[in-house]
């Protein structure tokens, strides 16, 4: 949008939304929505608190381990599915089912099997993110232009070179898209897992704040999570844009 000839970047519309939030809060329309300024104030109380630091540590730990596993497994499985048709046929159905199914329903089973701690959270993150990573990797590998592979073969590339110099780069746009979606889902997974477990991490904090009706603190925590999710996905999107120039012309 332009105002008096100046182009205003799109992200600035979020400022408008914050202003609307402030007005709704000041008018006291909904008891659940405090003024935005109160939330910002609460931000400075929440962040240094030991509750928050503990919750962040355990959440980040679960998220990092789960994502690491999901990346390794998802990318390897995706490559195998893309390169070997039999593997693609054997696993494609399951990957597709779990990619779009309400895995939230599995969390109670995980709690029954693995308890109320870190293992459940790690597995939740893994299960939420691994399928989309595998699926997008497979799509990327399958979309590699056959003439590029023939080119590599005709110039005598070894399998290893063919893979690291051609297939990997050709599949990179989809691979990165898969990683970005995997990150987003993994983060949703860790939060959903903790909400259901309700005794640790961010889930415990949300439970605590909403039970005691500490709305500014509740929204402050939410803003931190939204900010983290946005930054993480934009970071991957940055690399996606770097390879976008050849994504459409392979």
């Amino acid at each position: 949008m332009t105002l008096r000839g100046f182009r205003i970047p799109m992200v600035f519309s979020l400022v408008v939304w914050c202003a609307i939030w402030e007005i709704i809060g000041r008018l006291n329309l909904i008891s659940l929505i405090p003024p935005f300024t109160d939330v910002v104030e609460a931000l400075f109380e929440v962040i240094p608190s030991t509750d928050f630091i503990d919750a962040t540590m355990i959440t980040f730990q679960a998220f990092a381990i789960g994502m690491g596993l999901a990346l390794v497994v998802g990318i390897s499985v995706g490559i195998l599915m893309g390169r070997i048709p039999a593997v693609g046929n054997l696993m494609g159905m399951w990957v597709n089912i779990f990619e779009s199914s309400p895995l939230t329903a599995i969390v109670p089973a995980l709690m029954a099997i693995l308890g109320f701690g870190l293992p459940t959270m790690i597995v939740t993150v893994f299960l939420f993110s691994v399928w989309v990573i595998a699926l997008d990797t497979q799509v990327g590998v399958e979309r590699v232009n056959p003439s590029l592979i023939e080119m590599g073969r005709s110039f005598g590339a070894s399998n290893r070179a063919l893979f690291s110099k051609i297939v990997f780069f050709a599949a990179l746009p989809e691979l990165l898209a898969g990683i970005r979606l995997g990150l987003i889902r993994g983060l949703k997974g860790v939060i959903i897992g903790q909400l259901l477990i309700a005794v640790i991490g961010m889930g415990y904090l949300f439970e605590l704040y909403s039970r005691n009706f500490l709305m500014p603190e509740f929204w402050a925590l939410l803003i931190i999570l939204f900010g983290f999710a946005y930054i993480a996905s934009e970071a991957v999107a940055y690399f996606e844009r770097k390879v976008a120039f050849y994504a459409t012309s392979r």
């Binding site: 909400l195 939410l222 946005y230």
Partner: peptide
């Protein structure tokens, strides 16, 4: 104009764990 105002909000919401709001729904 609507794109300028709406798109960033939708993109943020889509990337965020908005499931965290679910516990608040009971109050409303």
């Amino acid at each position: 104009r609507a794109e300028w105002l709406g798109l960033p909000l939708i993109i943020v919401l889509q990337a965020s764990p908005s499931a965290a709001i679910v516990p608040l729904i009971t109050f409303l």
